[in-house]
Design a protein around this nucleic acid. Structure first.
Length: 868
DNA sequence: ATCGGGTAAATTTTT
DNA sequence: TTTACCCGAT
């Protein structure tokens, strides 16, 4: 493994201290040297943009202008006339990233960007290629892309057919295995026999095979297939591969550290210059291109004579195939090994670590100037990540001021942690910080609940980022299933999904008999249904509703010819009773689901027709655009990648949670390093303030357990970190004379105060100041003092106690003024945005206790509910 | 066929 | 503590 730990030299020439607000003297000076889109780039960025020939790896640390480099590079290629828009392959992982790039390109180039047909995600581009050559994968070009849910359902059926107990061998597990194989580029025949045998006493490989067969029959592909089938086609049809190799003069890859083996292989194949290996005639074309200045860089002559064999053998041991060898084209991969956090999902950090072996002669450019975070934050993040061994090594630096130190705060338990953070946020808000600039980043999503509860109580607006994506939501998949059945009567999975949604009295028994029928006669379920309603095999009731359903679909299909696809969708949703089903639903999210359905119909307008819509929907739809309201963001560390905030809160830095015990158990040292990278990602999200927390007691799955501060805390540099007191603790902890009344109030109000953890905290509080036990707390304080002497600086302490009292009181007053007049009375029927319908069981000023129909009893501030 | 209760299991999740 | 799934009762 290559190690490149020497920091690259940065000359001491002056650079703008902020990312080009375009207009510094230096910027203007450079502007005269090249096209104006190049002005404002620092020397490394500029090199990354201008090094067009041969393989380039841009190691772009957090906040160093990665996207800027990528988009400017495209602009540069175009403006130099090196390629037309359609000759640049530019891949990202997320639709969001692809959109962002399109947007920024548009700004840079004017409106000429619509013609970047090959800028997209791996999957959407793979899907597009696969549709073009679908028949070579035994598919039709209108094949369906299955989501995970469909995938699992299909596998369940296969397990049943094989008489395998799907309790002992869950379909989900098999789906995971198959997905893993596909991520590694393995077709059924290539799966190492040991692994294939792992599942269901040796039936794993066979199941993979029959799963693939089933997919073809259903005219469907899963996400993995979108790339894997590309690879297969490229290997089996060199002429087709050559066609793409010739088309793509330049390849750009975003977030290269997250690529898996399949994506790597796909890129490998595409990135090779069309070579004489397959066709002598091409020789000429290559030479021609060289002459016109579009050939490969001179470095290619120094190539490892057999660049592929080593990596191929390593990555793809089961494959006897060797890719044709040829010179590497102009591929530019941008990434950051220190932000590789998707190893558990198949990403191979090795891809980036071995880049210059895989792409010999590669030029490696490091972007180390960070334009995001202040000094202390950057130093803390850098020191933390420096504990990793498997990295290429970068040293992030900033010319910004040091700013505030990173704080580390201990609390007694996770509730105190949530309270403390809640108060700090209110304080920041008082100081004029926008809630939009505040984020809480957690390791595991179950940590979010406590914050949500707290914020609901405080009436603090928040928004959860992540969670199920738009098209993964049940209502969206249901709606899509209806449309899929209309579009393709052979789509059994879609038919099965909606045959009894809404309830039509067509249960398992009916579906089972349809299956039998379909299998016997080798026809799709839908056709089986059509046949079965003509017989009297079904009970009259089921027969009737099934006949109606078939008739409805026939009608919709007929309407399809004469109705716009958006209208058709609306008609289907209404006539099927699907809309009505949610209208009648009383749960909290019913309204949101109806809204989502509207959004779905609206989004169809962007497509020509139903077919086009269905082809792209699975790949292009993502989470709905966040609302514009000012709110705190709550998300996992994973979903924070790529985002940035002025203020970042990082709770739960405890052994077992972060780093996650499970990752440690399963992945060992590699897992630890990935967790550490996660910490690095978290810290580098912060522009001005990063605040870390740990609790001594945490409730995990309902039971309390004592935890030890995370080892990562010890790895933070003393000089950049400050240890502070938990304010959540001292607020009720009796310092400052005000605590007692506040405490009483809280106790009366919050049910959480009777938990064992709190009781322990209370007992402990009597022993030490502010809830602190006498120092026997996981040994953190001893270690803490070794890296900072500024434990709870007097300044901060007096500041906070001086400010806290009045502030909180003001908060009370504000809250009371809105509700003391008791808008509500006992047993009123109310609706809450998050918890749905319920009735009031208790009133305490503006605070209501409400028994929700679905969410149980909760306490909320009255301004958050409305009369139902 | 559907509802309700009881029980096991429980990160992270770009497509 | 919650949630998803299975089984038994209606």
């Amino acid at each position: 493994m290559i190690r490149m730990t020497e920091p690259s030299k940065i000359t001491s020439q002056s650079v703008p201290d902020h990312q080009p607000a375009a207009g510094g003297i230096a910027a203007r000076a450079r502007a005269s040297v090249g096209p104006k889109y190049l002005s404002g780039l620092n020397p490394e960025q500029r090199e990354a943009v201008e090094t067009l020939d041969g393989p380039v790896l841009v190691l772009a640390g957090a906040g160093t202008g990665k996207t800027r480099v990528l988009t400017t590079r495209i602009a540069h290629i175009l403006s130099q006339g090196r390629a037309r828009p359609g000759e640049i392959l530019s891949v990202t992982f997320t639709n969001k990233a692809a959109r962002e790039m399109k947007h920024r390109l548009g700004q840079m180039l004017g409106h000429a960007v619509e013609g970047m047909p090959w800028l997209g995600t791996f999957h959407s581009i793979g899907g597009r290629i696969l549709r073009t050559h679908a028949e070579l994968a035994q598919l039709k070009s209108n094949f369906t892309v299955l989501d995970v849910d469909d995938q699992v359902r299909l596998l369940k059926q296969l397990l049943q057919a094989e008489n395998i107990d799907d309790k002992r061998w869950p379909a989900r597990m098999l789906a995971g295995l198959i997905d893993g194989w596909k991520n590694r580029g393995l077709m059924p025949s290539q799966v190492p026999s040991g692994e294939a045998a792992m599942f269901a006493n040796g039936k794993g490989g066979k199941l993979y095979t029959s799963y693939q067969e089933r997919l073809k029959i259903l005219n469907a592909a899963d996400f993995g297939d979108l790339l894997l089938e590309n690879i297969r086609i490229f290997r089996e049809h060199p002429d087709i591969l050559r066609q793409y190799q010739q088309r793509f003069k330049f390849i750009l890859v975003d977030e290269y550290q997250d690529t898996n083996v399949a994506q790597y292989l796909w890129l490998r194949l595409l990135s090779q210059a069309p070579s004489s290996f397959t066709s002598p005639r091409l020789r000429g074309e290559v030479d021609l291109r060289s002459k016109s200045g579009e050939g490969d860089s001179p470095q290619t002559e120094l190539l490892d004579p057999d660049p592929l064999s080593a990596s191929e053998a390593r990555r793809d041991p089961a494959s006897g195939a060797r890719e044709p060898k040829g010179p590497t084209k102009n591929i530019c991969c941008v990434g950051d090994d220190d932000q590789s956090i998707y190893g558990w999902r198949g990403a191979e950090v090795d891809n980036i670590l071995r880049f210059d072996h895989d792409f010999p002669g590669a030029k490696v450019i490091r972007l180390e100037r960070n334009y995001r975070s202040t000094g202390h934050i950057l130093a803390a993040a850098s020191h933390l990540i420096a504990h990793n061994e498997g990295r290429l090594g970068k040293t992030l630096r900033t010319e910004d001021q040091d700013g505030e130190k990173v704080t580390v705060t201990g609390s007694w338990d996770s509730e105190e942690e949530a309270r403390g953070i809640g108060e700090e946020i209110e304080q920041l808000q008082r100081q004029g910080e926008k809630l939009n600039e505040i984020a809480i980043l957690v390791r595991a999503s179950y940590q979010m609940r406590e914050f949500e509860d707290r914020f609901v109580t405080l009436g603090l607006p928040y928004r959860v980022i992540g969670g199920p994506r738009f098209y993964e939501r049940a209502e969206i998949r249901d709606a899509l299933a209806y449309l899929r059945v209309i579009n393709s009567p052979a789509d059994d999975l879609a038919f099965e999904r909606i045959v009894n949604t809404p309830k039509r009295g067509l249960g398992d028994a009916t579906v089972q008999m349809l299956h039998d029928h379909a299998r016997k006669r080798r026809i799709p379920l839908f056709e089986a249904a059509r046949a079965v309603v003509e017989t009297d095999e079904l009970k009259p009731k089921a027969r009737g509703s099934l006949r109606d359903l078939v008739a409805q679909f026939d009608r919709w299909r007929a309407q399809r010819e004469v109705t716009a696809h958006t209208d058709l969708a609306q008609i289907v949703l209404d006539e099927s009773g699907y809309t009505e089903m949610w209208q009648k639903d009383r749960s909290a999210d019913a309204a949101g689901r109806l809204e989502n359905l509207k959004e779905l119909v609206r989004s169809m307008e962007e497509f020509e027709n139903l077919q086009g819509f269905l082809e792209h929907i699975a790949l292009v739809m993502d989470r709905d655009g966040g609302s514009e309201e000012d709110a705190v963001s709550l998300m996992t560390l994973h979903s924070a990648k790529g985002l940035e905030f002025d203020n970042v809160f990082l709770p739960g830095w405890e052994e077992g949670l972060f780093p996650s015990q499970r990752t440690l158990d399963e992945q060992g040292r590699a897992g630890l390093e990935e967790e550490r990278r996660l910490g690095h990602v978290g810290l580098t999200r912060a522009r001005r303030r990063a605040k870390i927390y740990f609790a001594t007691n945490r409730r995990i799955h309902g039971t309390w357990s004592t935890t030890i501060p995370s080892r990562f805390l010890d790895e933070l540099p003393a000089a950049n970190v400050e240890i502070t007191e938990s304010k959540g603790g001292s607020a009720w902890g009796g310092t400052g004379g005000y605590g007692a009344s506040r405490f009483d109030d809280m106790e009366a109000f919050g049910s959480s105060y009777s938990t064992p953890g709190w009781q322990r905290a209370q007992a402990n509080r009597n022993r030490g100041q502010g809830g602190r036990g006498g120092g026997s707390r996981g040994g953190f304080e001893e270690e803490a003092s070794s890296f900072s002497s500024s434990s709870s600086s007097p300044d901060f302490g007096s500041f906070s106690s001086r400010r806290r009292g009045p502030l909180t009181i003001e908060g009370e007053l504000v809250a009371k003024s809105t509700g003391t007049t008791s808008e509500f009375s006992l047993s009123d029927r109310v609706f809450h945005q998050k918890f749905g319908y319920g009735h009031v069981t208790k009133i305490d000023g503006n605070k209501l206790t409400i028994a929700f129909d679905k969410a149980g009893e909760k306490k909320v501030v009255d301004s958050f509910v409305q009369r139902a």
